[in-house]
Nucleic acid binder design. Structure first.
Lengths: 189, 189
DNA sequence: CGAAGTTCGTCAACACTGTTGACTCAACGG
DNA sequence: CCGTTGAGTCAACAGTGTTGACGAACTTCG
């Protein structure tokens, strides 16, 4: 009916990646809770039971859709430490930070699942805390890096999760100046 | 069976408050998604349909369980502006901040519901941004206050939602010093 | 080439969620 | 006293994630 089902060996990988890309898009657009297994299956033109069969559970599928490295903020990290605060804010405000933003928001909203919570601290540690801590000098570099991550998370929280109108209405320049300065205070005190 | 149902006029208010207190506890303990209407009803020894009848919906019930003023951080706000950053962190790390913390975490995790998102920005604006902004001098007081709220939210995020082990393992004194200093940088630059 | 086995896909069902409608029963107001 | 109102109960609905049994096609081996 729908077009038959060519059950070849490699066809499994094809539908699997179809499910994965549909899930990636829908999770990013509507978040973990709002994107249902059945709508994902419909978007991938696939039986709902099949997505579970391929990925074990909705939560497991979700975790495979988040790629911590997708944001390419390696370049931002590589720059001079003296202006890293500003550049971090600038990056996440701009279009280049979209992927990481959506990942973060979705992870936060689903963080009542233990495995999601684990992935949240794992990916922030991988992408944020460790790279920053390795470049810091002075006392307690790892703690300061973790607090920087908390600051960035707070900004993403207010801007893209709560959608604070005050910050949203302000110009990017002011936010970069002010919040970047506050972050810098932890990087190079 | 359970003890009969005395259907008096005032009995409605009694069971209503029983539902409300059970919901308040369960939402704070397990969050919005994990606390089901049926478990709340069971905790209040009440029919599940009754909680909907009294409060309209689970979301509406949830919103009535959050009291932004419950944290009594008026005292913290009233203190000297020069040390407000430290005292804010200190308050939320301590036992006095428990209520506000749980409210915040629950709101964040349920923030994909539009009404919950509205309540989130409303309550943070009421308890945080407005009181702080009114005391700030210098440029863009409201924006700086909103960014301070973002910082505090970020710390709550990392500590009580993601439960970052690095920050949790550190001593309160260090966190108060470092993060309080970063916040202070936005209050009195 | 034919048989065995493995993989892909389908369908119906399960337990659970929030929510609604129809119903009963007691209490109050005229 | 009777009718209206409000409280409480019960069964059911549509939706969720998930599982089991089953069929059908491809791959592999004898």
């Amino acid at each position: 009916m729908t077009q038959g089902h060519t059950t070849s060996r490699a066809a499994g990988q094809a539908t699997r990646s179809a499910i994965l890309s549909a899930a990636t898009r829908l999770f990013a657009e509507h978040g973990f809770n709002q994107a249902s297994v059945r709508t994902i299956a419909a978007a991938a033109e696939v039986d709902p039971a099949l997505v579970i069969r391929h990925f074990g559970s909705k939560e497991s599928l979700f975790l495979q859709t988040i790629d911590p490295m997708g944001g390419e903020l390696g370049e931002v990290m590589a720059g001079p430490l003296e202006t890293l605060g500003r550049r971090l804010v600038e990056h996440f405000l701009g279009k280049a930070g979209t992927s990481l933003r959506q990942n973060f928001v979705a992870l936060i909203q689903a963080s009542d699942r233990p495995h999601v919570k684990d992935e949240l601290i794992r990916s922030t540690g991988l992408v944020f805390v460790q790279p920053i801590a390795s470049r810091l000098s002075g006392d307690r570099p790892e703690l300061r890096a973790a607090l920087v991550a908390a600051q960035v998370g707070g900004l993403l929280n207010s801007l893209f999760l709560a959608e604070d109108p005050v910050i949203a209405a302000a110009g990017d320049e002011d936010v970069i100046d002010l919040y970047g300065g506050a972050i810098q205070h932890l990087l190079t005190p």
